[in-house]
């Protein structure tokens, strides 16, 4: 896949589920997927305008729980220069180094894993 028009807001949906034939249902994929705070796209078309646009991570939707049919969502949002973790009615401050906890753990079927990433163009 190549991208011709780079959007202002880039939403990346990680496919964290797959159909498992033996179980006859979808299962969650908890693979570790690292995502940087900054991003440029490599897979742009040759005629894309501004193909090296720089994006900043601004928000992450996180899925907690063992499978695609259950669990809980929390979100992490950058606000006023700091990262906030929204979990229902509680809001906590998150150190940037704490983002690592949401990359997912391949071995841990219950891990809290980043599911949708929102990047915003810097310009």
């Amino acid at each position: 896949m190549r991208i011709k028009k780079l959007p202002m807001i880039l939403a990346l949906h990680l496919k964290r589920f797959k159909y498992c034939d033996t179980l006859n249902k979808y299962t969650k994929l908890t693979y570790r997927v690292v995502f940087p705070f900054e991003l440029r796209l490599f897979n742009t078309t040759d005629d894309a305008s501004n193909p090296e646009r720089l994006y900043d991570l601004i928000a992450v939707v996180v899925h907690c729980g063992s499978g695609p049919y259950r669990g809980h969502y929390v979100s992490i949002v950058k606000s006023h220069g700091m990262w906030l973790l929204f979990d229902d009615d509680t809001v906590e401050k998150l150190e940037p180094s704490g983002m690592e906890d949401f990359y997912g753990v391949t071995a841990d079927k219950n891990s809290e894993s980043g599911y949708i990433l929102f990047y915003q163009s810097k310009e």
């Binding site: 040759d46 005629d47 894309a48 305008s49 501004n50 193909p51 090296e52 310009e123």
Partner: peptide
């Protein structure tokens, strides 16, 4: 890299990038 297309690309890019 595909330099031949790069030239055109560079021009466009320059125009669209404010800085």
């Amino acid at each position: 890299h595909d330099r031949s297309q790069k030239e055109a690309k560079e021009h466009k890019r320059n125009l669209s990038l404010p800085h």
